[in-house]
Design a protein around this nucleic acid. Structure first.
Length: 895
DNA sequence: TGAGTCACG
DNA sequence: ACGTACGTGACTCAA
């Protein structure tokens, strides 16, 4: 096999990393984000390619002669951001510490060095990779020189790869022709003028036809369009200069010896010196790479594909008595029958990866020889099953109402990782590997790009094998570490008794779905359309012109510039047109009232009327997805569609709920907790005043008003009650005078007065909140009654505002989180009893403090009793939990 | 892709 | 002096 050379465009990658990452600083105040990002990209490349040679090229700081040439012509380069400039020497220091070969040369750009070295490597018979954020380098691509462009995404780094053929495919021109395209179209970022009037389209077309600018010039008389024809002659000198500017020099007289770029095993990269530097820069999650990397992971060598029953039987036999990690490969099957529309896709079981030792990692592909049904059965006979992501696996296996005996055999590593750190948006296996095992391994996008494993399981078998087995292997290997972590943090019980059982409840709820009256929904949407049309015309008349009312930008211009309305509050990008602002103007200006109305109706139509109809399946049902590992506090979230934000506060919006109905002949039972968060506050603070108010079952806001404003309970005015209610909300959210003043439209002084009186009335609550914040500052996290933690890194921020935010979060998280824990417990118990006591009734939805059940008429009374009982008894507090229940033929009636 | 807006608890 | 209430997700526009 030929040797591999990796060349890195130093400044370009630093630049990418700098702008792609938030501004990290270490405790010395050094900016470190660019170095950090660079290292991550470097490690990823090393991991993927395992090159034999590595070199990083830098520009020398003085401008090169080519830019001088142009600067004389026009303009200068932008100066570098100071926070980035500081990091250049730091990066060089790091590379030196790691023993990485670097190169820079007076008079030449990094591009030229890269081009020259790439050519040298190719001629020496190597496979070359050039890593840069700069598309100019695409001109260097050949069959053996690959240009790799990293893109920093939310989910990590993705790399676009270009061999010569890929450039041709993507840009319709060869790498050499790419130079000429650039010469014509120009590049402002690179100070290449190009030819005026020729953009990307024309340039590509012309070069595609003629091959180079000289030929285009020679045929100028027949070149189309006319503007290009004229300008190619008129600006010919500029075109020639642009070509020169765009051309990367590939014959720089470099003093370079591959021997200096040789990577001598891991040891020379992961040096003591580099380790210490990483420590100084506080790259904590890079550190374990230096220590653990010595024991390189060999699991991948054992990944094996299995397609016949005989081999599978042997494997299952070998796995007996062992814990197994598994990952289910699903295949999207387009199914016209499935939906009223053509968008629905059914997920079908396509394969199963299992892991039960360092050497035993298999992907079993479902087929005639290896039936899906048999694979499922064999898997489900295992005693200890570690799932990469259990809920979708249950759906793929078509498992409902799983008996307890089977439920307790599962452990979901994604949920475990979520409990240990609920702040991450996602828990992909490569993060688990890095955070808990100190392993750096390729991610899904590295292996499969944007493609879904199930969709390419036949065409890209080897890649899917790698991906699926990494999933199962990491699941298997990390389980022990994650369990240990849960134990250390006192969250074993939370995991075992709440989160894991809940997976099965949510799975059943999702699979059951909820019935929707599609026709009624359509009619509702049509009615909205009519009203929206009328309002639209009216608004245009009032404005004296037509414009896009949905564009805050255009709307701002119309209202605050053209019509000169007062009070133009600003956002970062222009005038604020939020409801808060507009409501203040609505009384004086009819157009503003109409716009508010228009906004409301548009929202209802686009998000609910039209939005929901896209999710109705062939049986007339909607199946939301509940997410158990998203929120920082422990709540669930709901997507595709979100059924936790269906309108209720305004009547017209609430009408939507009439289209949500039970199965024919059945009815809905809906219970919600009353004031659960304030009850929890009473319990957790132990404040006698608040506890007593709840025990006496008083109107809690009136009671608060009476005490805070020192008026008899019966003489509390509406305004006083409203103010007290806002304070109660504020307390739960982590009170601030400013926030309260905004909510009540009063001054901050007055708001602070309310808060002071409140804390005088309820001293234990103040004590509790202060205590919670203090503990959070000390430990770095808060905890719910059931042990769930929420880390609050903001509390140690140097920024005052950020720290304040951290304090509010610290006050809110234990309350919101405990409420989330409690309703989860209730859900598990309700679901369990409905199955165990053989009810036909099903739990359908959860909306944070509300549970919706679909029930048969004859079960109604028993189900109401069951639901209320389990919700009330879910937690035993100093104040009882109160539940309100309603029934009905649709969700409107039942809530 | 991010910002603005708005629906819910 | 600072300039925000806590937690979510979907849609739209305009780069």
């Amino acid at each position: 096999m030929s040797e591999k050379l990796v060349l890195i465009d130093g400044h370009s990658i630093l630049n990418r990393a700098f702008f792609g990452l938030p501004d990290l600083t270490n405790s010395e105040g050094l900016h470190t984000n660019a170095v950090y990002g660079f290292l991550n990209i470097l490690f990823k490349i090393l991991e993927e390619e395992q090159p034999d040679y590595l070199t990083v090229a830098f520009d020398v700081h003085a401008p090169t002669f080519r830019h001088k040439m142009y600067e004389a012509y026009k303009g200068t380069r932008k100066p570098m951001d100071d926070a980035l400039r500081q990091q250049v020497p730091l990066m060089k220091e790091m590379l030196a510490a790691m023993g990485v070969c670097t190169i820079e040369m007076e008079g030449y750009e990094a591009d030229d060095l890269l081009g020259t070295l790439a050519g040298m490597g190719e001629r020496a018979g190597m496979e070359v990779s050039v890593v840069s954020g700069d598309r100019d380098l695409l001109q260097l691509a050949t069959d053996h020189v690959r240009i790799r462009i990293p893109k920093t995404k939310r989910t990590g780094t993705e790399i676009e790869d270009y061999l010569a053929a890929d450039v041709k495919e993507r840009y319709q021109v060869t790498p050499k022709e790419f130079i000429d395209v650039k010469a014509l179209m120009g590049d402002t970022a690179d100070n290449i003028p190009g030819v005026p009037g020729i953009g990307e389209k024309t340039a590509t077309a012309l070069i595609g036809q003629y091959g180079c600018i000289e030929e285009v010039h020679a045929h100028a008389d027949v070149v189309k369009p006319p503007r290009a024809s004229k300008n190619i002659v008129e600006y010919w000198d500029q075109a020639v200069m642009s070509k020169e500017l765009a051309t990367i020099i590939t014959d720089v007289p470099v003093d370079y010896d591959f021997a200096n770029a040789k990577i001598d095993g891991k040891a020379s990269l992961y040096t003591e010196e580099a380790y210490l530097l990483c420590k100084r820069l506080e790259f904590k999650n890079l550190l374990n790479r230096f220590t653990v990397d010595a024991q390189k992971n060999h699991a991948e060598e054992s990944f094996q594909i299995v397609k016949d029953q005989k081999t599978a039987d042997r494997i299952w036999k070998k796995a007996e008595g062992k814990e197994a990690g598994f990952y289910v490969v699903e295949q999207g099957v387009q199914n016209q029958q499935l939906s009223l529309f053509d968008t629905a896709e059914e997920q079908k079981f396509a394969g199963l990866a299992i892991s039960f030792s360092e050497e035993d990692n298999y992907l079993m592909v479902a087929s005639q020889e290896l039936p899906a049904e048999k694979l499922k059965q064999d898997l489900l006979e295992r005693q200890e099953l570690y799932a990469a992501d259990l809920k979708p696996a249950l759906a793929a296996f078509d498992l409902h109402d799983v008996p307890e005996e089977m439920r307790t055999r599962f452990f979901d590593r994604t949920i475990a990782a979520y409990l240990l750190n609920p702040l991450k948006g996602a828990y992909p296996y490569e993060d688990i590997a890095k955070d808990y095992l100190g392993l750096m391994i390729p991610s899904r996008t590295d292996l499969l790009g944007k493609q879904m494993p199930g969709d390419v399981i036949t065409e890209k078998e080897a890649d899917v094998l790698r991906y699926a087995c990494w999933e199962s292997y990491i699941t298997w290997k990390s389980a022990a570490v994650l369990k240990e972590g849960l134990k250390e943090h006192g969250m074993e019980q939370l995991m075992r008794e709440i989160e894991m059982p809940l997976v099965f409840v949510l799975s059943d709820m999702e699979q059951d779905g909820i019935c929707i009256d599609a026709n009624a929904l359509k009619e509702y949407g049509q009615k909205l359309s009519v009203s929206i049309g009328e309002l639209e015309q009216k608004i245009y008349e009032e404005a004296g012109e037509t414009f896009n009312i949905n564009s805050p930008k255009q709307l701002g211009v119309i209202l605050f510039e053209k019509m000169q309305l007062p009070n133009g509050k600003k956002t970062k990008t222009g005038f604020s047109t939020s409801a808060e602002v507009l409501e203040k103007l609505a009384g004086d200006y009819p157009i503003v009232a109409d716009i508010l109305e228009y906004r409301k109706l548009s929202k209802l139509k686009s998000t609910y009327a039209d939005g929901l109809s896209n999710f109705i399946d062939a049986t007339g049902k909607i199946h939301t997805t509940f997410h158990q590992t998203i929120t920082a506090t422990g709540r669930l979230s709901s997507t595709d569609p979100n059924l936790q934000n269906i309108p209720i506060r305004i009547e017209l919006g609430k009408m939507i709920r009439k289209v949500f109905h039970p199965m024919p002949g059945d009815l809905f039972v809906d219970s919600d907790y009353s004031q659960i968060e304030l009850r929890l506050l009473a319990h957790m603070s132990g404040d006698e005043q608040l506890i007593e108010a709840f025990r006496e079952n008083q109107d809690i806001h009136r009671s608060t008003a009476s005490k805070v404003f020192h008026v008899p309970f019966d003489e509390v005015t509406d305004l006083q009650r409203r103010n007290a209610k806002a304070v109660n909300f504020g307390i739960v959210y982590g009170i601030s005078a400013y926030g309260l003043s905004q909510d009540l439209n009063i001054g901050t002084k007055e708001a602070q007065g309310f808060i002071d009186s409140y804390f005088e009335t309820y001293p234990k609550i103040k004590e509790f909140l202060d205590n919670t914040v203090a503990q959070a500052k000390e430990k770095g996290y808060t905890r719910t009654l059931f042990g769930r933690i929420r880390p609050i890194p903001e509390l140690s921020s140097g920024n005052f505002m950020t720290r304040q935010f951290g304090e509010r979060v610290a006050m809110n998280a234990p309350i919101q989180g405990t409420a989330a824990d409690i309703i989860k417990i209730a859900m598990i118990r309700v679901h369990d009893r409905l199955i165990r006591e053989h009810f036909r009734s099903r739990l359908i939805l959860q909306v944070h403090d509300e549970l919706l059940i679909e029930t048969a008429e004859e079960e109604k009374e028993k189900v109401i009793a069951l639901l209320e009982e389990e919700m009330q008894k879910a937690a035993d507090l100093k104040v009882e939990l109160a539940v309100g229940t309603a029934c009905g033929q649709d969700w409107y009636e039942a809530h």
